[in-house]
C-alpha cells in the first residue's frame, strides 16, 4: 500500500459524549482543525518500494532494521537531553539532531516493513498503528538490531559530544556510500541523511575541540568520556553477515570498508584537540553475538520500557 487517499483524519468530537472535552464545541465540524497529530501518514506514500531484482527481501529488511535501529535508539538517548542540556542552544541542537535521526529511522523502518511485512509485530486486528510504529514500539530488546554503542546510558555533556562525534563520523561515511545503493529508497534516504549528518559531525567536532582545549575540568571529562565509549566503538565498523550480504547484493554498505576513511576524520579531531586515542580493547560479544544479533546491554531494555510504555498500553490508540 504505497499511496493513500486522504479522508478526513478525525471527526470533530461530540460534546454531548462523556469523552468530549470543553473545547469540543469550539471546533465545529471542520475536520481540518485536526490536520496535525491525529492521523498517521505513510512516510513512503507513493514511493516505489519494489525490491530490486535478485535481492532477497528478507535480507534487505534486516539490513534496513540495523540502520534504522541505530538511528532510533540514539535519537531517543539524545532526546533525553531535552530541558537538561548545559544551555538553551545545546538543548535545541541536541533535539534537532535527535529529530533528524528519528526521521531517518522512520523512513528506514517503513522501508523494512515494505520489503518484508513479516518483520512487523502483529497487533490486534483493527489496530491503527502503522508498520514503522509497530516496529519501534512493539519489538522486544532482543529484536532490536542496533549496535550497543548507541544504547548505553547518557553520561555528562562531554560523553554525548564524544558519542555524537564517533556515531556521526561512522554513519556519515556509511550513508555517503549508500547513496549508490541499488535500492532507490535506501539511496534517497542516504542522500538526505548525508546532508544532516554533516551538520551533526561538525557540531560534535567543534564541541570536542572546545572541551579538549577548554578548562582542565572540561578536558578531564572529555578524555574520560572517550575512554568509556572506546570499547563500544569498533562494533559500529565491524562487518555483520547481514551487512556483508547487503553489500554483496549492491544494496548496502559493509561498514568495515569505511573504517579507514572514518579513522582519518577522527584523527583530524584528535590531533587538533591534542587528545590521545584510548588504549582499550573492544567490548566482546557473547558467544560471538553483538548488538546486530539482538544481544544487548541491560540499558536497552530499560530505555525501551520507557520509550514504549504508552504505545504498548494503547495498541488500538489513535494519536
Amino acid at each position: 500500500m504505497n499511496e493513500f487517499h486522504q479522508t478526513p483524519s478525525h471527526s470533530a468530537p461530540d460534546p454531548s459524549h462523556e469523552d468530549g472535552s470543553v473545547y469540543d464545541g469550539l471546533l465545529g465540524t471542520d475536520s481540518s482543525q485536526w490536520a496535525f497529530g491525529t492521523d498517521f501518514e505513510d512516510p513512503l506514500a507513493g514511493v516505489d518500494t519494489t525490491v530490486p531484482d535478485g535481492v532477497d527481501h528478507r535480507m534487505l529488511a534486516a539490513y534496513c532494521l540495523a540502520l534504522a535501529d541505530d538511528a532510533l535508539v540514539f535519537s531517543h538517548r539524545l532526546s533525553e537531553w531535552c530541558s537538561n542540556a548545559p544551555d538553551l542552544e545545546e538543548d535545541i541542537a541536541l533535539a534537532n539532531i535527535a529529530l533528524d535521526l528519528l526521521g531517518q529511522a522512520r523512513l528506514l523502518l517503513a522501508r523494512a516493513a515494505a520489503a518484508d511485512p513479516d518483520v512487523v509485530p502483529v497487533l490486534p486486528e483493527g489496530s491503527p498503528v502503522p508498520a514503522e510504529d509497530a516496529l519501534a514500539f512493539f519489538r522486544e530488546a532482543d529484536e532490536f538490531r542496533n549496535v550497543r554503542f548507541v544504547e548505553v546510558p547518557n553520561g555528562d555533556f562531554a560523553h554525548t559530544v564524544a558519542r555524537v562525534l564517533l556515531f556521526a563520523t561512522a554513519r556519515l561515511a556509511v550513508l555517503d556510500r549508500l547513496t549508490g545503493s541499488r535500492d532507490a529508497v535506501l539511496a534517497a534516504v542516504a542522500a538526505k541523511g548525508v546532508k544532516e549528518l554533516t551538520y551533526h559531525r561538525d557540531y560534535a567536532g567543534r564541541w570536542f575541540l572546545t572541551l579538549a582545549r577548554g578548562t582542565e575540568e572540561s578536558r578531564r571529562r572529555l578524555v574520560a568520556a572517550l575512554d568509556q565509549l572506546w570499547p563500544l566503538y569498533p562494533e559500529m565498523l565491524a562487518t555483520h553477515p547481514v551487512e556483508a550480504a547487503a553489500a554483496e547484493a549492491g544494496v548496502g554498505v559493509d561498514p568495515a570498508t569505511v573504517a579507514a576513511e572514518t579513522d582519518v576524520v577522527l584523527e583530524q579531531v584528535l590531533a587538533m584537540s591534542g587528545v590521545d586515542r584510548p588504549q582499550r580493547a573492544s567490548l566482546a560479544g557473547v558467544d560471538g553475538r553483538t548488538g546486530r544479533d539482538g544481544l544487548h546491554t541491560e540499558a536497552l531494555s530499560r530505555m525501551l520500557a520507557e520509550m514504549q510504555v504508552v504505545a504498548r498500553a494503547h495498541p488500538m490508540g489513535q494519536w
Binding site: Q6, A35, F36, E41, P43, G103, V189, K192, E196
Partner: peptide
C-alpha cells in the same frame, strides 16, 4: 529534512 514534522500538515493543507 528527514524528520520534518510538518509533512502531515502540508499534506492535509494541500488536500483541504
Amino acid at each position: 529534512y528527514s524528520g520534518c514534522p510538518a509533512m502531515a500538515t502540508m499534506r492535509d493543507d494541500l488536500v483541504h
